[in-house]
Design a protein around this nucleic acid. Structure first.
Lengths: 354, 354
DNA sequence: GTTTAGCACTCGAGTATTATGAGTGCTAAG
DNA sequence: CTTAGCACTCATAATACTCGAGTGCTAAAC
């Protein structure tokens, strides 16, 4: 059977109606639409065809039709019209971004919250890092008699520090020595490459400061692992409850149980690296339990080989057009913000964190 | 009317039964309890009394009774027996703490998650800081030709840093000068005390590095404000859905809407500073919407004049005994962890964050 | 050949009706 | 003071019934 233009038109109407109303759509209401000038009977026939072709489903005999996953897929890939953000929307998006991101401390998680807000769906945000991190340099700063601050700068220009206090006092000499040894021996090594042998060598060279080596190394490996591991934040889970499909508390709970950080961290594997915006519809998701759930996600660059990913999770029946529009606008904004890496004299810049 | 021992006994039985079963309890089931050797009729009479005294409520004529807020209050204050943690429980609590807290990066929020896990209720965690923070010292570390790392140590020994890059190259001289100026003029000032005048003075003294002053000051005020502001994390909201009282999706949603970070940040105001563990029952909460909701919270010390607060939110019918037991055990554990401030040579210590 | 009107049929959702029984308050006997 | 007995209440569950949206099919109209 052939997928005529009229069929497509009808399919689109069905998907969009269902997205709006969350209720199966019948032939009559379709016939009433201004740009579908056919009788309900004709439309019924077409709908029957679409059903046998697998684009529609029938919850039960006497209900209307709802889109099948394949139907959604087709809609997303071919039928969906770009949603245009209204001026108002761009305004408020801009504002939200600026306000929230000034405090970029936990920028990523803030982003998640924002996305959740603007889409009214649960959102997640994560960072992902290409390649293993190494330490680019160490700095030690004396802090009082018996302590110092260890500052570590990684290959991705993240800076981490730790205050190390000791029960004994240490001299500036010791600290200088330690600093030299660290910079000589532990830079450009990934966490995996810091083997016991390396550690031994460092300890031997460290002389008086040998006792400090384990503390330092612990911290360093922790930092590096932290860098490699992508952080995931999920927020706004409760937003799901406002969707009619989750008015059944059982489903809602199951969904929310599923929707934790571990599930999300499985997502990047599914991502086609070439496509900035991705939509996974129902069964295409791995996690079986998320059958009638879709995921929309997008990536953005945050410099230094780091990438961020933000996305939302919702019922298959979500407003793909609107959500992709908002999400990509948001992602662009972020990329821009993270983009201005070098500061024009005396203006805010970015990257790293406290 | 007098609150006899028998009445108390019955009240306790009712509260505990209701906590377990989440269903109104009737005279018959009470009479069946081994330590209530009275006929159902007798118990009925007592229940009628308790009802007129305001400790019990009747959802409708022919249902059993449920505790009123006053009933809960009495139970918590007088009737509740200390719940004893089983060895198993302490074990798993210990394990959980150790595992999770090694990565103390966002220790506070991790705690929230943990508490939510062990109580199976939504949990929140927050830090609160006494007194305004100031910068204790500045350190600048050259990083390449045209950038440096600004390291700030606050009065509470938190260390924050920022990588500042410039479009022009700078000399070691400039950096040294800036460092001296900052340490001379901006230490021991709270965010509020950094007035435009101060700023002016600093800028003038900074000479060649004057252009950098705004960036630095922005960062500093941001850090200080950040320190003052208490951070709140809420997690596990979805846990509520497993409680029967929230099987009504409407209530659940209303509740979850209410239960955001802003609501929580109102809580500390209600806290009696002398009492480590606090329980707010239903109407005692400010936020009107949380009528049939209770809050259990506890504080713990994390050194440096900082305090943490963790707590859980749940239906008034929650297992106060068990939850307070777990929570306080948890709080003790945390206090201990945060306590070991000074490290015995070559062992993990703590405080600060990356 | 395509479109449409007509019609019998299906079946979920909503409504009304009716048990059922847990729980109560009260009275009177133990 | 306690308890057995009993009439009464009322939410919940079960059942039956209606309603109507939507369907598929056939036959007539275009």
């Amino acid at each position: 059977m052939e997928l005529t233009d009229r069929k497509k038109k009808i399919l689109r109407a069905i998907v969009e109606s269902y997205i709006q109303e969350a209720e199966p759509v019948g032939s009559k209401s379709l016939a009433a639409m201004p740009d579908l000038n056919y009788s309900s009977a004709t439309i019924r026939n077409e709908m029957a065809d679409l059903t046998t072709m697998g684009y529609l489903e029938q919850p039960h005999t006497s209900a209307g039709r709802i889109p099948s996953p394949a139907g959604y897929r087709l809609y997303i890939d071919e039928l969906m019209q770009n949603y245009r953000l209204s001026v108002d929307e761009t305004h408020s998006l801009n504002e939200a971004m600026e306000q929230k991101l000034q405090e970029f401390d936990s920028a990523i998680s803030q982003m998640g919250k924002l996305v959740s807000q603007i889409t009214n769906l649960p959102a997640y945000a994560m960072t992902s890092q290409k390649g293993a991190a190494t330490v680019r340099r160490f700095d030690l700063i004396m802090a009082g008699e018996s302590g110092f601050i260890l500052v570590v700068m990684t290959s991705s220009e993240a800076i981490r520090n730790k205050l190390i206090k000791l029960p004994v006092s240490i001299t500036e000499q010791d600290v200088k020595l330690l600093s030299a040894v660290l910079n000589a021996s532990l830079t450009d090594l990934t966490a995996a490459e810091i083997t016991p042998e390396v550690l031994n060598r460092v300890t031997r060279s460290a002389g008086a400061a040998a006792g400090l080596v384990p503390v330092v190394v612990d911290f360093v490996t922790h930092v590096l692992q932290q860098q490699e591991k992508s952080e995931v934040y999920v927020t706004g889970q409760a937003k799901l409850l406002s969707q009619p499909e989750y008015h059944d508390i059982g489903k809602a709970q199951q969904m929310l149980d599923e929707l934790d950080e571990e599930m999300i961290s499985g997502l990047p594997a599914l991502v086609d690296p070439d496509q900035p915006m991705q939509i996974l519809v129902g069964p295409e998701n791995i996690t079986q339990e998320l059958k009638n759930t879709s995921v929309v996600m997008t990536r953005f660059d945050i410099g230094d080989g780091m990438q961020g990913m933000i996305g939302v999770v919702g019922p298959t029946r979500m407003d793909y057009a609107k959500i992709t529009a908002r999400l990509s606008y948001f992602a662009e904004g972020l990329a821009k913000m993270f983009g201005k890496q070098v500061l024009p004299p005396a203006k805010e810049e970015n990257k790293e964190e406290s």
